[in-house]
Amino acid sequence: MPVQKECPILSVERLNADAISIWLECGELAKAAAVGQFVNIKCGEALLLRRPISICRVEDTRLNVVFEVRGEGTAWLAARSAGETLDVLGPLGHGFTYPEGKVLVVGGGIGVPPMLNTALRAPAGAIACLGFRSAERAMLVEEFQRACEQVYLASDDGTLGVHGFVADIVDAALTEHPEVAAVLACGPRIMLKTTYDVCRRHGVACQVSMEERMGCGIGACLVCACKSADGAYRHVCKDGPVFAAEEVCWDA
């Protein structure tokens, strides 16, 4: 069950040129959060819509969100400091489901942070494939290296890890680790699609975390529509954000 709560900010840290990490004291809200879920945060009085931000980590009652500054709302959030409070609604959405066995977590860009929580809590261990634009835009790599058995890295410009796409390192990881029971992924739509293609070739189940512009964040307003393979619209905030990759209409 989601709750709405004023949550004190414990720390605000810049991870790279675009990404900000905020730790919040969230009480029971944090304890209730499942992997792949998100919180919907009010960004000041002038903006009506809350900003949905995935949960990066949870430590007891403390909850960590990492986001990129993309517009007015996230710029407002980035300007907060420790001691202030944020109006948080959550935990929200349908998250990742762990299979029996090891998982490969896959993240691209700002899709990387939620995969940290997913890796940390994986009951049978995790491997990670992370993609960034460049070494400068990387984040949380050391945290993943501590949480995972092995971390594969790729960057668009070759300044970190493999010079290439996330799907390339997913292919390598699945080849070297046939024991992987499922791939759990978050990132740009094209990355999710190519990751799913690789998974199909390897015969491995794939779950993807989707993005769409949201209104209420709880499933009432029906704006965050995501087309399913069966042609019906499902909603990222309530039916998702995580869907089985085969349920998504990739041609939409």
Binding site: E212, R213, M214, V223, C224, C226, Y233
Partner: peptide, 8 residues
């Protein structure tokens, strides 16, 4: 089914 996204 409604309209294609973005809807907001």
């Amino acid at each position: 089914e409604g309209n294609p996204p973005p809807r907001i």
